[in-house]
Design a protein around this nucleic acid. Structure first.
Lengths: 219, 219
DNA sequence: CCTGTTGGGAAACGGTTGTTTTAAACGTGA
DNA sequence: TCACGTTTAAAACAACCGTTTCCCAACAGG
């Protein structure tokens, strides 16, 4: 009981502080004092601050990838080789993203961490995530390809990242946006409400007409 | 010649390093050594690191807001009170965004800084930008409102931020994405090429059908 | 020539960072 | 009981941080 308690208390505190302030702005002394564990415990259990950061991500991404693979297995079995509709794919991904963090913490923290991983320099993180969890994305992209045969490969690649940007950016900067929305419209939006709003926009973006004049502006 | 030289050399170096690594990860010693100026010069000319960061943003945003206001003036004069089409508004904004940084540095740096301003904690930055440059966005949002009278106010607010997220996220994480795209498809995309691809996606997202089932998932 | 201002150069300031070390406790299983 | 892994406490480490201070060079107007 002692071991897991200290380790998970470090992880629980670290992920919140990281999400709030970023990695560089959060010191190990911040974490350990708020978690009420010894300063040396971090280096004892994780080895370094860098490893702590990766452990925080692993605790979210490991269950996510596992569950998402299982979901895709079910979908592929159900559709028996026929292309899975785009809406079904996007819906499944959204559901999995919503399920996993709900078991422990808020979705907001997870999204904020994802946004930080993209934005914050922290070169090691991008490499770690891409190498560790790139396979799920590749598999998902392959299924999206079957669902949208009319899209050129490169166009689909970019649109997927456009939509990824929409979701991560919105949900990771959610607090700031929520403040503005609240003072402008007095309405308080929940994460699920936001996802409901996101869905038609994402689908429409993926199904948008191809860009015109391919060569006039190229270069 | 001596004063301006030191000041602009600090600004030029700082904006590049900030964009590459973020604010907290970039020390004044990094900046001054690479800019080949004295360490004390930053505090002498700008007062503090915080003020330096704001000065970096001001150098981009001041010309942008000025030019964008002028562009909107022209549009309003040309359309004589009639609503300006959404495509024209988006196109004008894109053109202004493209013009301003081209005079000095790459668009990539500008977008990366914008993304950082959103993401990075640095509480003072969001407040500074919103207070200093919020009026242009408000004016733009008002024109978009006239162009999309069928959208509820809150829906339009969120969709504008969705699209903002798409653009900022894509263009600020451009280097990482470009690497992946290059190794996957061997094609090297330019910023203008990306904007050409972004346009139909953004327009389709703004014109997406309204979300269904408004109350079933609310809360 | 003197004086006051301005900018640059170098060093030092106090403080915080991640990490390591030492030591002493604690609980658990052999 | 002994040994082991875990945890805490406290201290120190070297490195780096933003900021400040002191001093000199350049140059201005009197």
């Amino acid at each position: 009981m002692a071991q897991t308690d200290t380790v998970t208390r470090i992880l629980n505190t670290a992920e919140v502080l990281f999400a709030e302030r970023g990695f560089a702005e959060t010191s190990l002394r911040n974490i350990t004092s708020k978690a009420k564990v010894n300063l040396a415990a971090v280096n004892y259990h994780f080895g370094s601050k860098k490893a702590l950061i990766q452990a925080v991500f692993a605790r979210y991404l490991d269950p996510f990838t596992e569950r998402f693979h299982a979901t895709l297995d079910e979908l592929e079995a159900h559709y028996e080789g026929q292309p899975i509709p785009l809406e079904v794919l996007l819906e499944s991904m959204a559901r999995t993203v919503l399920e996993v963090p709900a078991e422990r913490n808020s979705l907001k923290v997870f999204m904020r961490l994802l946004g930080l991983a993209y934005t914050q320099a922290q070169g090691h993180l991008r490499g770690y995530i891409q190498q560790q969890y790139g396979s799920v994305f590749t598999r998902f992209a392959g299924l999206v390809r079957e669902a949208t045969p009319e899209l050129p490969d490169s166009e689909r690649f970019w649109r997927l990242h456009f939509m990824l940007g929409t979701v991560i950016f919105t949900l990771s900067g959610l607090d700031a946006l929520r403040d503005i929305a609240e003072q402008d419209y007095g309405e308080h939006v929940s994460v699920r409400e936001l996802i409901r709003r996101l869905r038609p926009v994402v689908v429409a973006g993926m199904n948008a007409p191809l860009p015109q004049d391919p060569q006039a502006l190229a270069g």
